[in-house]
Write a protein that binds this DNA or RNA. Sequence first.
DNA 1: GGGTGCTGAATGGCTATTCATTCATTATCC
DNA 2: GGATAATGAATGAATAGCCATTCAGCACCC
Lengths: 204, 204
Amino acid sequence: MTRSVRGGAPAKAQVVDKREAILKAAIKVFARNGYFSSKVSDVAAEAGIADGTVYLYFKSKDEILHSIFDRAMDEFIAEGKRELASITTPIDKLRRIAELHLERLSADRNLAIVFQVELRGSTKHMREFSAAGFGDYLDIIKRTIEDGQAAGEFRSDVKPVVAAKILYGALDEMVTNWVLSKKSYPLAPMAGEVLKLFFGGIAK
Amino acid sequence: MTRSVRGGAPAKAQVVDKREAILKAAIKVFARNGYFSSKVSDVAAEAGIADGTVYLYFKSKDEILHSIFDRAMDEFIAEGKRELASITTPIDKLRRIAELHLERLSADRNLAIVFQVELRGSTKHMREFSAAGFGDYLDIIKRTIEDGQAAGEFRSDVKPVVAAKILYGALDEMVTNWVLSKKSYPLAPMAGEVLKLFFGGIAK
DNA sequence: GGGTGCTGAATGGCTATTCATTCATTATCC
DNA sequence: GGATAATGAATGAATAGCCATTCAGCACCC
């Protein structure tokens, strides 16, 4: 637990830590019971703090969910941009995107559950999340495809937006299946399978 | 409204009608406000009946959601099997599956919202729905792909299950985007775009 | 008048959020 | 350096509101 159990003026680091601890606990609890069935007191208990303390760090239960999304998405996009910067060909870029997508989500199963299931439970949330961050992600894929078309590596008779959605949809479905599956299997290798089909198609 | 506003002994047809009316109202209300934010009294109001009447036809709010899914999925699968029976080549079958998928969902936007968003809001529901009906659907696609491989029309170095998930994921993403989009555009034509890529790939 | 279907107010359980209180730590003073 | 006061993070019991579900009675039909 934190050094100072009560009172005093904690270092800033501690404030961040506690916020972090609540988010971590919330991911675990939401993944286990679902967002709507989870009580704020469950999250507090998981984090080892009192119910009221949650409200010193978050305005509402809803804000916790939002923060989970924001933080993860920011990290994800930042890492993506960093990684892609050093890759030149569109094909390799798409490959890396797919790998990162699956690696990232399979690295934290609870986070994956929240992302694949809990975040999608209402049009309200969906719209908010689509606007923030998610649109950026699709856009990165779209632009990479445009680059590939410009470079003559990809067919030009496919709309980049549509192709981007297809690739995203395929990856997303892999993750959702993995999350819901009773069996445990490595997710990352699916990237290769998806790309093989995305690049070459299934017809002979 | 139904002929007899109150009381009496309705013909069996009327019982079915009222059940139907509640389901229809629920789809509308759930699509508008989301399942968790929707009150049973909202559904009753939309259906033009008293709150308590809902419980003469459904055991619980949850059962309403389940019934929506069951009914739509049964219809969908039945129609799919019927349509596919008269098609011979795997390629044409997949084409018809994709078209039906998009046509069906775009025919009823509210139902589409419930399917794409509300039904996915909890692992509990997701698991239940995955088991019932949804698995069958993926299976139909999978088998069609196997047939295509056996007939030498499709590459054999792609696992049928994976390919099925990819196609489903791509279609699903098209629908989700369409549902969340502020702009209104026809969904069905996307089937062609998806299949062009699924069959031929994006590489030149 | 007996039966059937419907009604909608009342119930009961549940849980997000609040806030008066506690107390470890820090600052101030002599 | 020891005593005293001030601080504000943390607590958790209490509040307040919500809403699924129930059920006692009503309307209508034969």
